[in-house]
């Protein structure tokens, strides 16, 4: 069954889009990430104009993160205080990122900056996580039990001034590194056009030792607000949000996110981290391959404007 998308100005298969929404929603609900870095390339691959793809998939992220955040809220697995601090840093980072984006574009090096940062970010984060996971798996297999973390045993960055107690996350940490983290994620998000959930989740897990269940809920809550802002801005500035496509993606996405969140609850924490590491590394490798392999069609077309 085909349906015409009035803003993208092309027709797509309804079932295909529903299925894609569901698959990406599942991954997003499972790991507490937005999933935009999966959906955008898929939509562009279908032939949807890049501007429409980027703008419209944010509607799906809003829907699926609403579902996840509400579910986490009900299970009390959402640290609103932590999310609030993250949001403040995130907004400042986004503003900085937008400024940097314009500056790099003026210098004509934007393409290179984006591509290199993508590959570096994904490969380094994925690689580190995978190493950690494998070590963890190995030690459980040998029967060695990790000594449980004792109270008051913290890395130096957590002991900086302005310490705040985040009850839900069971951490007592300086607000400065949390702000710094969200600032850099907001920055990367604006420059790379991604939500940054996949950086936030491992960072909260590994750097701040926030419990896995709370990480997913908190990350989804933060993603909800940033993406909501992005969606409205895209609609106003670029008029590139296709409501029909958005609706299809949302319907598929909310169901997928439900199943994903449910699957996530039954997943062991070490397996969760291993799977997330593999996903991030796979995306990094995909971008790297695209970069170094000689393209079959070196030319590409971009319609810059329509004339009446």
């Amino acid at each position: 069954m085909q349906i015409y998308l009035p803003i993208a100005e092309m027709s797509v298969s309804v079932l295909l889009i529903l299925g894609m929404g569901m698959a990406v929603g599942f991954v997003s609900g499972l790991f507490g990430i937005g999933g935009g870095f999966l959906m955008t390339p898929l939509l562009i691959f279908l032939g949807i104009p890049p501007a429409v793809a980027v703008a419209t998939q944010s509607a799906q992220i809003v829907a699926s993160s609403t579902t996840s955040a509400l579910a986490a809220w009900r299970r009390r697995a959402l640290d609103v205080k932590l999310a609030g601090v993250l949001l403040i840093g995130g907004l400042m980072g986004t503003a900085l990122g937008v400024w940097f984006f314009a500056a790099a574009r003026r210098a004509g090096q934007l393409e290179l900056v984006i591509v290199i940062s993508y590959v570096t970010l994904f490969s380094v984060i994925g690689g580190l996580m995978l190493k950690e996971s494998i070590k963890e798996f190995w030690s459980t297999r040998k029967g060695a039990v990790r000594p449980p973390r004792r109270g008051g045993q913290h890395p130096a960055y957590m002991r900086l001034p302005l310490r705040v107690r985040f009850y839900r996350s069971k951490i007592y940490v300086s607000a400065l590194p949390v702000l710094g983290l969200s600032l850099s994620i907001g920055f990367a998000g604006a420059v790379l056009g991604i939500g940054g959930g996949f950086i936030l989740v491992p960072a909260l897990l590994y750097l701040f030792r926030v419990p896995t269940a709370v990480v997913v809920g908190t990350s989804q809550f933060q993603i909800l607000w940033t993406t909501l802002a992005a969606l409205v801005l895209h609609a106003v500035a670029n008029q590139a949000v296709d409501a029909v496509l958005a609706l299809l993606l949302i319907i598929g996405g909310v169901f997928g996110a439900q199943f994903g969140a449910r699957a996530g609850r039954n997943l062991r924490a070490d397996l969760f981290r291993l799977l997330l590491a593999l996903l991030i590394l796979a995306v990094g490798v995909r971008f790297a391959v695209e970069l170094v392999v000689r393209p079959t069609e070196p030319f590409s077309l971009v319609v810059s404007e329509m004339r009446e």
Binding site: V62, A63, T66, L70, L228, V241, L247, I250, A257
Partner: peptide, 18 residues
Amino acid sequence: LYGLGTAAVALLFGWLAT
């Protein structure tokens, strides 16, 4: 208005699913 409307639909569906 269109952007806000799309956002509202997204929020509504997200809530409906829960």
